[in-house]
């Protein structure tokens, strides 16, 4: 498909915004091996977002958008929060619905797309904050996994409600005191990756966004598995530097500190047997090896 959908009529080329012209000329739609390495040398699918200076969530957004395997056939479903401020600046189809509804909307969307485009691969990616995924939308999130809906859920975990001033969320660590949670969190951080495993997710990963190649691998695998096998879940730590009292240049160090051994965001990955078998069939290197041995 590539850029067919977005190319500009030559008559109107000069009146289109410069950013759109750049997107058509240098965007990475239709490129087979998209990845974070394209960043800096081609036009990214996100432009002039309104997040704070130095926000780690925007780093995560850049990686996620750079790593989508087929952005022109991807539809992202967002939810309320800081992430919803970015979606108007993103060059991928996206839907915004009520707070917490994102997985329910994505379920319907995926089914509708499979009826409307039976011969095409359409990816649906849910991208929401921890409040939408774990607190307000937990019902929808879990039910979509129980039903084995084939789409990817990405959770940007900043451990509180950052957009409204720092209220405590289900994913906040125990004892943490935030601006609008002065008594401290009373119970443990909800272990959603474990819940996802037992709820039927075929790929579960928990990490920070301090290593772009790791994020790229996880997102590609999650979306490829979601195409054929079943639901997948990725939890990315994107700390809110404002609400945890850090300076704007300290976000990266905060992520590196919290992914060490036995820390709460130590890298974890789970791939179900079914998904492993599927990944082997689509891995080009292994395919060649099999052909040689056979």
């Amino acid at each position: 498909m590539g850029k067919e959908k977005i190319k500009i009529n030559p008559e109107f080329y000069d009146i289109m915004p410069v950013e759109y012209q750049e997107l058509v000329e240098e965007g990475t739609y239709g490129k087979e091996d998209r990845g974070w390495k394209d960043v800096g040398e081609s036009k990214e699918l996100i432009e002039e977002h309104s997040l704070c200076a130095g926000c780690p969530e925007s780093i995560a957004f850049r990686y996620v958008l750079a790593c989508l395997p087929a952005p022109e056939d991807t539809i992202m479903v967002g939810s309320t929060g800081c992430t919803s401020l970015v979606f108007p600046h993103v060059a991928v189809h996206n839907i915004h619905s009520l707070f917490g509804n994102q997985n329910a909307v994505a379920s319907g969307l995926k089914r509708a797309l499979s009826y409307r485009f039976p011969d095409k691969v359409k990816d649906v990616v849910v991208l929401a904050g921890d409040g939408a995924t774990v607190d307000i939308g937990l019902d929808m999130t879990l039910q979509s996994w129980f039903r084995q809906e084939k789409f990817t859920t990405i959770c940007f975990d900043n451990e509180l409600y950052a957009n409204t001033g720092g209220q405590s969320s289900g994913l906040m660590q125990k004892g943490f005191v935030a601006k609008m949670a002065p008594a401290g969190k009373k119970f443990d951080k909800v272990n959603l990756p474990e819940i996802a495993k037992v709820s039927g997710c075929h790929y579960v990963a928990k990490m920070t966004v301090s290593k772009p190649n790791r994020v790229e691998k996880a997102i590609r695998q999650a979306i490829l598995i979601a195409r054929e096998v079943g639901p997948t879940y990725i939890q990315l730590y994107t700390p809110c530097i404002l609400e945890i009292g850090k300076q704007m240049m300290e976000g990266l160090q905060e992520m590196r500190d919290s992914e060490g051994p036995n820390k709460r965001f130590e890298f974890e990955e789970y791939i179900s047997e079914e998904a492993k078998a599927y990944l082997e069939t689509i891995d080009p290197k292994k395919k060649k090896k099999k052909a040689i041995t056979a």
């Binding site: 800096g40 040398e41 002039e48 200076a53 925007s58 780093i59 850049r62 976000g251 990266l252």
Partner: peptide, 28 residues
Amino acid sequence: CPEANTIMFNKENRVAEVVEQRCKGCEL
């Protein structure tokens, strides 16, 4: 860099360059 399309790789000079209009000055 948290901002998109802000620090670009200049293919002619083979160095990184900053698009100043987009830089928010976060120092990362």
